[in-house]
Design a binder for these strands. Sequence first.
RNA 1: GGGUGAUUAGCUCAGGUGGUAGAGCGCCUCCUUUACACGGAGGAUGUCGGCGGUUCAAUUCCGUCAUCGCCCACCA
Length: 880
Amino acid sequence: MKTKFVPKNIESYLYDFWEKKKFFSPNYKNKEGNFCIVIPPPNITGELHMGHAFQQTLMDIIIRYQRIKGKNTFWQTGTDHAGIATQVLIEKKFFKLKENRKENNKKKLIKKIWEWKKKLNFKINNQMRCLGNSIDWSKERFTLDKDMSIAVRKSFIKLYKNKLIYKSKKLSNWDVSLRTVISDLEVEYRQVSSKMWNICYPIVKDNINNEQEFLVISTTRPETLFGDVAISVHPNDIRYKKYIGKFVCVPLTNRIIPIISDNEIDVNKGTGCVKITPAHDFKDYEIAKRNNLPMINIFKKNGKLRSSLQFFDSNGDQLFDVNFFVPLIFKNLNRYEVRKKVIFEINKLGLLKEEKIIQNVVPYGDRTGTIIEPMLTDQWYLNTKPLSILAIKSVKKGNIKFIPDKYKNVFFSWMENINDWCISRQLWWGHQIPVWYDKKNNIYVGNDENEIREKYKISKDIILTQEKDVLDTWFSSGLWCFASLGWPKQTDLFKNFYPTDVLVTGFDIIFFWVSRMILLSTYLVKDKCGNSQVPFKKVIVTGLIRDEFGKKMSKSQGNVIDPLDIIHGISLSDLIKKRTKFISNKETIQSISNFIKFNFPNGIEAFGTDSLRFYFSFLSTPKQDINWNYSRLKFCKNFCTKLWNASRFVFIYIKEININTENKKINLSFPDQWILIELNELIKKYDFEMKNYRFDVVAQNLYDFFWNKFCDWYLEFSKIIRINQKKIELEGTRYSLKKVLLAILILLHPIIPYITEYIWKEMKKIDSVHNKESILEESFPSVFSIDANEKIIKQEMDWFQKKIIELRNIRIKSHFHPKDMVFLYLKNIDCKNKKYFEKYENYLKKMSFLEEILFLSDEKMEFNNKFKKIDGAECLMLKK
RNA sequence: GGGUGAUUAGCUCAGGUGGUAGAGCGCCUCCUUUACACGGAGGAUGUCGGCGGUUCAAUUCCGUCAUCGCCCACCA
C-alpha cells in the first residue's frame, strides 16, 4: 500500500470493477428479502447539484447497508423529461423566442431536446458513477420512454373511465410567456410593492336632473376594467347600501354594469367597492358564479388586449364576441402598456382619484418568472378529492411513514384541502394526452386511434385528431415508482420490489411529487386482494444544502458548489469562471472573484468521493436547512487518511507477525477483549441508527470508535504487545487487529465505498482466507462472544486510560520530555489502586515511559510538596 | 392570517424515553516518537434565547414571551 492516500488513484477503476462484475444487479438468491429504492429522477435540464449528490449518497448508503445485511437490493435509476423546464431551456438556448411555438417548428424543437437529453443523460450518469452510486445501469429509465407512455395512457384511461379526469372551462393560471396553463403549485407568490389606483365609476343617474355621483373603486390592475361585469359592495356597508341595484358606467368602454352585493367583500380593504372581473381574477370568478354574472375574456394568449371581447355566461359557455368596447388606441398593446394607457386616459377624464404604493402579493410562474394571468381556458383536470381519501388513509394507517415525522402533518393539511389538479399543458415536450376528437368535438379516450376506431366503430371517413396538449410532467413522475419497475406489466422487478421501501427526497417536492405519487399509486395499484398499494413504505425527507453563510446556492448568486469540484478539485481560475458564468453585472463578478481569491487562493483541493460521502452522512441531520461547512469536509478527508494509515500499520503488523490465527483457539489479552467488546457495542449502535436513518450518528459512532478507541488506544496497546514478543499475546492481537479492521471496513463501506474496498483488497493480498472478490460480498459483522466479564473489562480499561492521562499530565507539569524515562513514586496508595497498578504495570510503564513504579510508605521519602495526587496517593515523577 | 421549525462553546452543529453538557473546526502549551504533522499529548471555553410552571432533579416535559426561518393561503 502506498504511504499516501490519493483518492483519484483508487476511485475510477474500482467503480468499473464493480460495474463489470454486476455487483449492483438484483441477486434473487439472497435470503433476507428484497429491498428497493427508486431514485427521484433528476431533470434533464442540468447536471447534478449538491442536493442531488447529497440525497443520492444517502440512498446509496441505505442500499449498500441493506445489501451487506443480506437483502436482494435494487436501486432503480432514471431521468425526468421535466416538461416545462426543459422546453423553456431549449427554446431559450437554441431558438429565437419569436419563432418558437409555430407548428412547423415542433419537429425541430423535439429533435433538439432529444439530442440535449442524450448529452445531459450521459453527463448525469457519469456524475452518479463518480459518486459511487451502486446502480444497475441496465435498468435505467426515462419518463418519456415507450413503456412509461403505456403506463401513462393506462392510468389516464382508467381515471377517465372512472370519471376522475374531466375537461372543463375554468379560470386557470395562464403563463403568457409560455402560453400554457400551469397548476396551482407552479405558481409562486411574491411580496412586491405595487401601485394601487382609486378610480371613479360614474353612477347611472335615475333622473337627469340629479347630480352626477361616483363610486370609487381601488385596483392594482386597472387594465382589467375592460372585463368588468359588476361593482360589488358588502350588503351591510352603510356607505354603499343605497347604491345596490343601481348601475355604473365603466370608464373608457362605456358599458353599463350593475352594482351588486356580496358577503365576501371586505369593507376595510381599498374603498370597499370592488370591480368584478370574473375572467381575470379568481375571487371575482367565484363571485360571478354565485351571482350569475357573465364573464368577459379581454386578453389574447400572449397577454395582449383583444380587440373583440369574448363574452361567456356564468357556466363558461361562450355567448358572443363584441368588438366595439375597446377603443382603438388600446389595440394590440400588452397588459402593462394597457395599464399605463388606461391610467393616462382615466386621468385625462378626471376620473383618477388617487394613486398610492402598497405592498401586495403577486403570482409568478415558477419557471418563467412572469406574472400569471388568470384566464378562462379549456383544460383537463384530475378530481383529486376521491383519491386523497385513499392517500390519507394509507399514511394514517402507517403504511407510509414520513421521516422526520413532522412532514406527515404537512402532507395531511395539503391533502385535506386539495383542489382539482390541472393536468394539461399547452406544450410540445411531454406525454400527449390520449384523447381524440371528431369534427363535432366528441371526445374519445383510448390507447391509440385504431383502438378507438375499432371500439367506437368510427369509419375511416371521419377524421379524428388527437388532443394537442401534453400532460403535466408530474403526472408521469407520479407513476414513477411503479411504472419504472414495469407496471402495468407484471415484470420480475415489479413483482419483487413493489411497493418500494424507501424514498429519499427534499421537502420542496412533497406536494409536487411525493403526494401525487401516493395519490396515484393508492388508486391505480392494488394487490391481489384489491388493497391499495403504497408507492413506498418510508419517505426520508432531507434538508436543503445552503452555502457557508446559509444562503441558497444559485447560479445567479455565484455561490454554487459543484459536487464534482469537491471530488476532483478545481483550479482558482476555473472556479472563478464557473461561478461567474451566469452573472452579467460587472461589480457582482468582481466581488465574487475577490471572495473566491481570498477564500480559495489555490482553488479547491481534490477531496475525493469518500470524503464527500462521509461528510454527507454527517450532514444528514433532521434539519430543514443545512449549511455547507468546509472545515468538516476537511475533517472527513482526514478521517479517510487516518483510515488509510491505520490500515497500513495493521498490515505491517500482520505481515511481520506471521502466525496463522485461523481455526485456532485464540487467547485474548486485556486490550483485545476490550476492543472486541467496544466493537460489539458499535455494531449494535450502528444497526440501530441505520434503521433510524440517522447517518450522522452512524458516522459519529464510527469515527469515535475508530479514532478514539481503535487508533488512540488499541493500536498503542498492540505496539506494546509487539515489543513484548510473547507469542500468545501476539496471536491474540493479530487476530483482533484483523477482525476489528475488517469489521470497521464493512461497517464503513456503505458510507465510504472506495477506500474500504481498496483496503479490503489489500488485506486480502496479505492474508487471504476466502475467495471473495469484493467487500461487497462480505456479510455484516456478527457480534463476538467474549470469554470475560465485559463490565469488569470496561471498568478496568476506564481506570487504565484515566491513569495514563493523569500520568501524562504529571509529566507535562513536571516539564519532562514526552519520551524521557522516569521513575514513578507512589506514596500511601490504597490497596485497590495498588492492585491495578501492579496488574497493568507493564502497559503503564511502556505507555507512559516509566522506568519503574515504586510504592512507598510514609516514612521513606520526603516529597517536599512537589508531589501531585493520584487516587489519594502522593505521586512524584523523577528523571532517571 | 393558519401551520411549522429553530435558538446549546468563537464558528458549524449532535444531544430517542428528564439525573453532574458533546463533536468537528478554531484557540493556547508541548512533541517531528519506527501507521499517520491530513499526526500525537495536554489544556481553556457554555447561568443549553428570556421568564414562569411540573419534579427530589429540566438543555430535555408544559406554558409564555422574544428573535430568526420555512410552508400554505392572499393581485381590491
